[in-house]
Design a protein around this nucleic acid. Sequence first.
DNA 1: GGTAGGATGGGCT
DNA 2: GCCCATCCTACCC
Length: 197
Amino acid sequence: MIATRSPGLGPILSRTFYRRPATQVARDLLGKVLIHGATGGVIVETEAYLGLDDAASHAYRGITRRNAVMFGPPGYAYVYFIYGMYECVNVVTEPDGKAGAVLIRALEPLLGIELMQSRRPTAKRPRDLASGPGKLTLALGITRALNGADVTKGALIVRDRRGAAPFEIEASPRIGITKNADLPLRFTIKGNEFISR
DNA sequence: GGTAGGATGGGCT
DNA sequence: GCCCATCCTACCC
């Protein structure tokens, strides 16, 4: 089902949008468009990661060199390296000084699809291009060089969308974690075929 | 349709 | 030295 596809990009999301609780931002990012350079897609799956109270969060044990961006001002990218091979992208939420971020887990490809395919030669079908946090960073060319980048301006941005069909939000447990794994902090566009599972 | 196992290296105890 | 906010291939229904 392609419930979200239709043209009409709106304005870039403001810093105020991100200066809110991670759980709220995670829900509200669904249906928005993540863009890097000539490539981009509709956000169809997110996860909220909280701060010092969330054992699954990189921020749980306090500030370190890796996670420092999560403790800074909202509206910046937190990109980290995982499993020796992949990178994942978050947007930082909450006011400056309070840790929180939203992991972008899946996109419905929208812009620069041919370029994404060339970056993801193992993808057999469009739904495999960006249906996972490591896949979408490859498809969009997002690397750790973008850690700390301002997502309210520049090459990596999130834009609103006009004229998209309405959708339902489904909440479920976060994927791939073992600690604090019961909370329903994963959000998906219900029925969308581009989610990670 | 489904899943088990391996790849691969930074981060932190 | 162990733990990962993962993905792909091979193999089995």
